[in-house]
């Protein structure tokens, strides 16, 4: 059977092609994005976010959901965090007051994670044009 060689070569080529994305990207995992904090963020609340940083990393979308529900539906706009500090619950006026460098902060991480929040179709993403 002289086809045996051909078949084996075909299988090898096929496997190589199928696995292309894997070997092509080998060792090139995108590094986690480096986030920039504004000077204002570093000083406004003693260098702390509205909630502990681990919570923010994992749960900021849930927190924003609580905020908007509370503001729009319950008319309650003041947030008291676990250490008793108060914040005005506003995406543009509070989060982006500290994180006014949205492009180097929110967007950078979201691009990495391939998340595209549609909030900015309505919420103003540069309340104060600062770096």
């Amino acid at each position: 059977m002289s086809d045996k060689k051909l078949i084996i070569a075909g299988v090898v080529i096929f496997v190589a092609l199928i696995a292309f994305p894997f070997w092509f990207n080998m060792g090139k995992a995108a590094p986690a994005p480096e986030l920039k904090l504004t000077e204002h963020a570093k000083t406004a609340n003693d260098g702390k976010c509205v909630m502990p940083v681990d919570y923010m990393k994992a749960e900021h979308m849930q927190l924003l959901d609580v905020w908007r529900h509370s503001v729009v539906r319950n008319a309650e706009r003041t947030f008291v965090n676990t250490s008793g500090k108060e914040f005005n619950m506003s995406l543009s006026n509070t989060c982006l007051d500290c994180h006014s460098n949205k492009a180097d902060f929110c967007d950078r991480c979201h691009n990495y994670a391939s998340v595209r929040p549609y909030c900015w179709d309505c919420h103003i993403d540069n309340p104060k044009e600062t770096e």
Binding site: E76, R77, V80
Partner: peptide
Amino acid sequence: KQHPTIGLKKAKDA
């Protein structure tokens, strides 16, 4: 654990 006690309220002058 993930939902520590937080408070939501109206502003004083509302």
